[in-house]
Amino acid sequence: MPSATASPTQTKRGSSNPFIAFCQSSIGKKIIVGVTGVYLIVFITGHLLGNLEIYLGQDHVNAYAQFLQGLGPILWLERAILIAAVVIHIVVTIQLAAENRAARPQKYAHYNYQAAKPSSRTMIYSGLLVLCFVIYHLLQFTFMTTNPEYRHLEDHLHRHDVYRMMILGFQQPIISLFYAAAIFFLAAHLSHGFSSVVQTLGINNQKVSGFVSNGGRWFSWLIFAGYVSIPVSILIGLIK
């Protein structure tokens, strides 16, 4: 006997707990990635603004660093949230990527992209490359494991001389080049990520969509320009 189409009530509907069901759903996961993404965008912007203080001179940078250190528990709270955001952003993305792979078990022999940009198609790779960089970046400037000599840098007020540390770090062309490449991948990630977040969080519509995707590109290249300007300025001797 021919079979009737099964009723959807027969298919799995997920948890009855609304929060768990949300977190298990594809859109829920996307929103989690989006919200953590927004947090990371804010952090990246703030971090850039802090870094750009290098143009204001040694005193400003070191005072800012000391201010941050002085925040104590608040700094640790912020760091905890940041780490959580990074972990959740990555773990959920990997889950989604695995589900998406399963949704297309047989690939097209011959596929012809119509709209997807290289940045959107390489999000997971650009993201993972940025992660690798972040680890190195922390080892270099935060834990100073790669460069223990940075620990002893002090300015005339006996503050940790972050200014000098940045100049020493970026005076090595290889480090600067690696840094610039990593920031390039970050910018590519943001170029799609920014407009993607607007779409995923449900803010996009036909009136603003053009503005959002252009805005995403402008924002990411501004971030790129801002970050990369520092090693460039150091290498060409603008900052000594």
Binding site: P2, S3, A4, T5, S7, P8, T9
Partner: peptide
């Protein structure tokens, strides 16, 4: 009605 169980649908029939 298919969802409610009132109709059984037989496509490609």
């Amino acid at each position: 009605q298919i969802n409610m169980g009132g109709v059984k649908m037989f496509p490609r029939s």
